[in-house]
């Protein structure tokens, strides 16, 4: 399997002087193409910081992040922007949509960055994605006229517009009720099955149990790795995976 992301001993600290603290303290890892990986850990352990470092949204103080062959610390700001637009997709805990734009415009916005010539094609693609994620008919709604679950699906559609190699999710179900969270995870699983790599941060065992690999981070270091095995989407299989993951997590003192 090809390596999509490789981090080498990355360090990221916050604060000044006595209050300076390494939030990431020498993290080395690899994410392969086509993987579905969850990062777990207690609050303040560095989960989100790791996600932002691996996606190039934040600089690291030391170490290297290689994304699809490119060293993120040495490429220019604009190349990084291009990478985000063409190879990466992001889903955040809150919907992070622009309030001035309606739902459809929010979805097509990043893809329109290269010019509006193929606008009609992009609109078609967005509508198809909306249909697949249960958003059909909401195209011209303002973002204030949609529910949290719907908005999170809008975020997913936007992330998929550029045919990304990877989707980063920062607690994508964290602000949703269980029904909406399940719907989102189902969509993410489908996306993963279509060949897209997914790396998400979560504190929810039910979410992590649906992934192929779980990394546990503590005090800025990778403290452990858990492989739940193949997920066959049956209720029993899911239950068993959740239980074994919970057991492992308790061993990790989570």
């Amino acid at each position: 399997m090809n390596t999509l992301i490789r981090s080498e001993n990355i360090v990221k600290s916050f604060g000044e002087g006595d209050e300076k603290r390494n939030v990431l303290d020498g993290v080395s890892l690899e994410i392969n193409q086509g993987e579905f990986v969850a990062v777990m850990g207690p609050s303040g352990s560095g989960k989100s910081t790791l996600l932002y470092a691996l996606s190039g949204m934040d600089n690291v103080d030391r170490g290297k992040v290689i994304f699809d062959g490119a060293d993120l610390s040495s490429i220019k700001e604009n190349e990084l922007a291009d990478l985000r637009r063409t190879k990466m997709g992001f889903i955040f805990q809150q919907p992070t949509l622009l309030k001035n734009l309606n739902i459809l415009d929010n979805i097509i916005l990043p893809s329109m960055r290269n010019g509006s010539k193929n606008g009609a094609q992009l609109t078609e693609k967005a509508k198809l994605l909306m249909e697949n994620t249960g958003l059909a008919g909401l195209e011209n709604r303002d973002i204030t006229q949609a529910s949290g679950g719907q908005l999170q699906r809008v975020g997913i559609c936007r992330a998929l517009m550029g045919n990304p190699k990877i989707i980063f999710g920062d607690e994508p179900t964290g602000a949703l009720n269980s029904t909406s969270a399940n719907e989102i995870m189902t969509i993410l699983s489908q996306i993963h099955q279509s060949g897209v790599t997914i790396l998400l941060v979560t504190h929810d065992v039910k979410v992590a149990a649906k992934t192929g690999r779980v990394l546990f981070i503590l005090d800025g270091k990778i403290a452990g790795e858990y492989l739940p095995g193949d997920y066959d989407e049956t209720r029993d299989n899911l239950k068993a995976r959740e239980e074994s993951l919970t057991t492992w997590l308790s061993e990790m003192k989570f």
Binding site: N100, L101, L104, I108, G115, S116, L122
Partner: peptide, 23 residues
């Protein structure tokens, strides 16, 4: 007016100009 001014319908302006005018 602003609501009817949609990115999906925009053929004339570049996306940055569109976003500026829309704002």
């Amino acid at each position: 007016g602003a609501r009817r001014f949609r990115l999906s319908m925009n053929k004339l302006l570049g996306v940055n100009v569109f976003l500026g005018v829309k704002d």
